[in-house]
Design a protein around this nucleic acid. Structure first.
Lengths: 157, 157
DNA sequence: GCGCTTTACTTGACACGTCAAGTTTTAGCG
DNA sequence: CGCTAAAACTTGACGTGTCAAGTAAAGCGC
């Protein structure tokens, strides 16, 4: 922050795109979270974890793997799993192969929860995003976003 | 949630776009917030408020107007302004025309803060978003996002 | 096989936001 | 006017998520 006091500014087109992106970044998560909270009583993180577990081998995995795949911090996951354990959707079980590790296991009730919740969530995604765009736009949008993801993704630039 | 237990699923293209969008929704705000926090000690909401005030008539406005324009709830804004008042960046002043209203006024120190912070933030936006795309992609992305914004924006669908 | 480092979580303190209820002032209405 | 309703905040209780420190079990080098 000491070198360039005035970087290249944004031109009109860039500015318009950035403004639109900022709005989507603000409102879309809010809408999706609201839908999950209202219809299923789940936070976004809880849904992600539940959903990922439901698709994983044996409907279970080590905490650290779940954290990585569901895009949450380990400490966050620890709390999330704690809450969902109390609801009976997930169980914690020690990993027989590694005494340090804990396995998060989806219970039958947890599976039911996912099955009951996913369709409504997908419908909301469709309503707010996919169905508002032409197929060509969906493809273009995907391409641009992939490019952004590449610059954001794991640890760094 | 009672009618359609199984809505139209997403095809591969749609799914890929949604996954990319979900990642951007998770990581981009995190990155931008981290930059603001690190370089300026500001939350996203604080920056938005400061930034909007700096561009407003007289560098001041009623709380409810600031809230609407900076995309925060009034109760959130009340806390944000409280914090920034303690830092000396903003002042609260009763509205002479309406005893119920409060004006949020940017102080000279607050103006300096914006001037010092904005370039770095814009640079980060450029680095993470604009500069990763071709001009054509920027335009296309803007178009698609505008369409989404239309379906999200003020109160409803 | 004994310390030293690393990995895998967990937990306490805390920041940011949200929701609902409360306060004060203005606007309408008969 | 006087009374009820609405508007414009503010605040307390709370939930979700983060950061840093703490604990416990592996892995390693010698």
């Amino acid at each position: 922050m000491s070198a360039a006091p005035d970087p290249r500014w944004l031109d009109d087109d860039e500015r318009a795109t950035w403004v639109a992106l900022a709005k989507v970044l603000t409102w879309l998560p809010q809408r999706l979270d609201a839908q999950l909270q209202r219809d299923a009583g789940l936070s976004h993180a809880e849904y992600q974890v539940l959903s990922w577990l439901s698709m994983s081998e044996g409907r279970s995995a080590r905490m650290s793997l779940v954290a990585a795949r569901a895009t949450v911090t380990l400490s966050h996951l620890s709390r999330v799993v704690g809450r969902m354990e109390r609801q009976g959707w997930v169980e914690r079980r020690p990993d027989p192969h590694d005494g340090r590790a804990t396995l998060a296991v989806l219970t039958p009730a947890g599976w039911e929860k996912v099955v009951a919740t996913a369709p409504g969530h997908v419908a909301e995604v469709r309503r707010l995003v996919i169905d508002r765009l032409t197929p060509a736009q969906v493809t273009q949008l995907g391409g641009a976003l992939d490019e952004l993801v590449r610059g954001l993704a794991p640890g760094e630039c």
